[in-house]
Amino acid sequence: MYEVNKTEPFWWGLFSLGGVVAALFVPIHIIMVGFLSAEAVGYHQMVALVGNPLIKLYLFTLVSLPLFHAAHRLRFALKDLGLKVAGGLLGVFLYGGAVFGTMVAAYIVATLP
């Protein structure tokens, strides 16, 4: 019979937080990195910014949460595209990737000058 799933709320919670972060902040960051002049987001000014622990926290959140968002969406999209057999493995691979990306992001952001 049916049984409450105790892990899905965790992944769904990260998915929706990541969705909010991506929706709020990613488009403007793409503009800044991709389309503004290199001086607008130049080295000295970036280094000055990342010295601020709040900016560090922001950058970590900005990268980490949307990774979980993507992992969750791709897991279900691929399932509906016919990768159903790989269901469990797919989850391990995608969420594992997001966890790994989060650890890398934490290391990079923490060791910023």
């Binding site: 019979m1 049916y2 049984e3 409450v4 799933n5 899905e8 709320p9 769904w12 969406r73 279900f76 999209a77 509906d80």
Partner: peptide, 15 residues
């Protein structure tokens, strides 16, 4: 009802 709809076959399957 929560037993049923909060199961793997319930709300979590919805995209």
């Amino acid at each position: 009802r929560q037993q049923v709809i909060a199961s793997s076959e319930g709300i979590w399957d919805c995209t």
